[in-house]
Design a protein around this nucleic acid. Structure first.
Lengths: 231, 231
DNA sequence: ACCTGAACACCGTTCAAGT
DNA sequence: ACCTGAACACCGTTCAAGT
């Protein structure tokens, strides 16, 4: 924290970097990390860069485009777990958990991932890796491709839901109160399972859900029997 | 306002219904059906009711609250499939497909369902029904409760993703073009599976995903080694 | 080619003033 | 208690004018 204050070096921190797509995306990601998804706007990104919102349109088509660029850039920074010799299921789980943690690691990113759709190199290397694992498990092309989509969408939706609850100003207790205000005669099971419905921390629930999906993907056609020696 | 000589029965069609939570929610749902989620705003709902946005705050805490009320009301109108004597899996699938079709049936609803979180009677009767089916299949309380959450979240996410693509002004081809512009050496599997990744209509993909999750839920828990037991 | 200020057409929310 | 107009503090996007 406390370093000897160096003579102000302008070299390490240019006063006003020239605009570029990269600079804009980086500033937008910084802003979102600070103020959340709802604090992100073209005008504020521009202000961060000491310019007006109109200037950004040279590099970015519109807000949605910036969202997609931000998501792909953030995913590109994510570190993929070692591609070791673990069985496909463990490898898939650690990749998915890393993805989940990346979404949780930067404020606003989970919601961005549910809103925007990234198809650039940052997102696609995750697809490539997961596709490799599911094909290696013996699934055919369609099952592997749709499986990757299913797994990543589920991870994204879980992260977004949890982030939305936190950011939405909706206290978790108030949801529970609403459920418990329902007439017990008409909703006996919901009432009886309230504890289970609201139990489980974020990552625990997410890991459970992903395991169930992997169970489903492994269970039906396409899996070579005897691969897992787990049965 | 006009008390003398009513030419027709004003009882059947009041010119300006008095404000109430129900009237506001109905007007909001109508507006969204017409102009989509992005066309929905408190100001426009108020204009629809011949008043100002400030007037709505007597009945609704804020925009997020209105979203939740809208979602619950829309789900409450949804017709659940007959509670016949079908096996639990078929019954669950037809319930989930009905939910999916409800989300697709009203413009903007899918995105609303991913954004808002409904815990009122309209949403809870779906939870109640699904909970009943999964418990009937022999799952314990936690597995059934988390399973319902998983299934409904997946259905919602699929619907929202598809709706978002349509509404976001993002042509599906342009995503594919972006994927196919990636260097083949680094993303060979993504490129090789492009057809599979983009294949399948909305309901087909959704039904496949839900079947996979049901497979996973139906599979005996604990067959996998390691990871699962740390919960 | 890039950047800008100003304008356009919107937002959610609050509040004092009315009834 | 309910309703309202006006105000506040914002938006994304366009465009003519500058460099």
């Amino acid at each position: 924290m406390n370093e000897r204050t160096p003579p102000t070096s302008r070299r390490s921190r240019p006063a006003k970097p020239p605009l570029s797509r990269e600079v804009i995306v980086a500033a937008a990601l910084d802003l979102m990390a600070r103020d959340g998804f709802s604090g992100l706007s073209l005008r504020r990104v521009a202000a961060e860069l000491d310019t007006g919102a109109a200037s950004l349109y040279v590099y970015v088509a519109n807000l949605g485009h910036l969202h997609r660029l931000m998501l792909d850039a953030a995913l590109g920074e994510m570190q993929l777990p070692e591609d070791g010799s673990a069985p496909w299921r463990e490898a898939a789980m650690s990749l998915l958990l890393a993805y989940l943690q990346a979404l949780h690691g930067r404020r606003g990113l989970a919601r961005l991932a549910m809103t925007a759709l990234a198809a650039g190199p940052g997102a696609m290397r995750i697809w490539e890796r997961l596709l490799h694992l599911l094909r290696g498990a013996g699934m055919d092309g369609r099952r592997a491709a749709w499986g990757v989509d299913l797994l990543l969408l589920q991870a994204t939706a879980i992260a977004a839901e949890q982030a939305g609850r936190d950011a939405g100003g909706l206290r978790p207790e108030s949801i529970r109160e609403e459920v418990e205000a329902l007439p017990e005669e008409r909703y006996p099971l919901v009432r009886a399972h309230a504890d289970d419905l609201f139990s489980g921390g974020g990552l625990q629930r997410a890991a459970w859900a992903l395991e169930v999906i992997l169970d489903g993907l492994a269970a039906a056609p396409g899996v070579r029997p005897g691969l897992g020696e787990t049965l």
